[in-house]
Simulated assay, not measured.
Amino acid sequence: MGGVGFSVYGFKDKYTDSILFLKIYHDVRSSGAGGHIFLDFVEYTGHIPIQLTTDKGSEVGWLYAFMSVLQSVYAPDIDPSVYPFHVLIKSIHNTVIEGFWRRFKEKTGLNLKDFLLHGKEQHLFNPHDAMHEPLFYWVFAPLIQQALDDFIDWWNHHRVRHQHDKIMPSGHVPAHALDYPELFGALDCRIAIPPEAVAELRSQLDEEGPASKYQTFPGLTPEFNIYATEIYERMGAPTVTLAGAWDIFVEMAREIALDQAE
């Protein structure tokens, strides 16, 4: 949409069908971005899996290295020749996450896309106005992330369709299976990772750049955040919802234009 938009990266548990992590980012393709995203996931959950399965994207180089190091240190008894710590497959074969993306789009993604495109179709967003890009992210990034968080909550607590011939659980609630795997004939195989290990690995990414290099949306500087907050409060700090977000965007853009004209 005129050069702005969001990328989504997620991690999903195959056995329980639980969504473990689902976040919006500016960059999900470069190697450095992938390294920081993986560490965000480990920091958020406090664990790594015995095996991580991804496609062969450009972002997975550091994921492979970090999985190797963390498993060798915190689960040295696991033989990687028996249980590979990272499996790389073509995206069309990565059915766990690819199938999930289809469900996500059907449930939430298409509505979010249509909602964001409304601003372009109605000419509310002007890609040639330098202030519109950071304002777009200031208004919409928190809303989109909240929509993802709501979807995670729904998904992890909905009942999965029963499949008679499925070896792994079916007809269950994902969060229940994740919290009580023994009730489903399984073990909790997550490998606990301390926060200091995540911090140490982040330091290894210095050559790639800090997380902010990949995760800060264009133009959304600390200075702009302060300025946009002042504009928002000047308007009376109206509640921001998806339904009214474009109205708030237009009003804030108008206030910014008036400031610039003075």
Score class of each variant (00 low, 15 high):
58 S>V: 04
149 D>A: 11
83 Y>S: 12
124 L>G: 02
249 F>G: 02
144 I>T: 03
168 M>V: 02
224 F>K: 15
259 D>V: 10
204 Q>D: 15
88 L>S: 12
163 Q>W: 06
80 P>K: 03
205 L>H: 07
255 E>L: 15
20 L>I: 03
146 Q>Y: 13
165 D>C: 10
158 H>W: 11
243 A>D: 15
130 A>G: 03
178 L>K: 11
123 H>D: 14
97 I>T: 11
141 A>D: 06
40 D>G: 11
152 I>Y: 07
61 G>H: 03
43 E>S: 15
201 L>A: 10
82 V>N: 05
174 P>W: 07
131 M>V: 01
233 E>N: 14
130 A>L: 10
224 F>T: 13
82 V>Q: 09
93 H>G: 01
220 L>A: 05
259 D>N: 12
73 V>S: 07
124 L>W: 14
245 A>P: 00
70 L>Q: 04
33 A>N: 06
93 H>W: 07
153 D>E: 13
126 N>C: 07
184 F>V: 03
10 G>W: 05
19 I>P: 01
188 D>I: 08
28 V>Y: 13
260 Q>C: 09
14 K>A: 06
162 H>M: 09
140 F>V: 00
54 T>C: 08
74 Y>T: 11
252 M>W: 05
41 F>C: 15
159 R>V: 12
170 S>E: 05
208 E>M: 08
196 E>R: 14
53 T>Y: 03
198 V>Q: 07
171 G>K: 01
253 A>W: 04
89 I>Y: 00
117 L>Q: 13
15 Y>A: 14
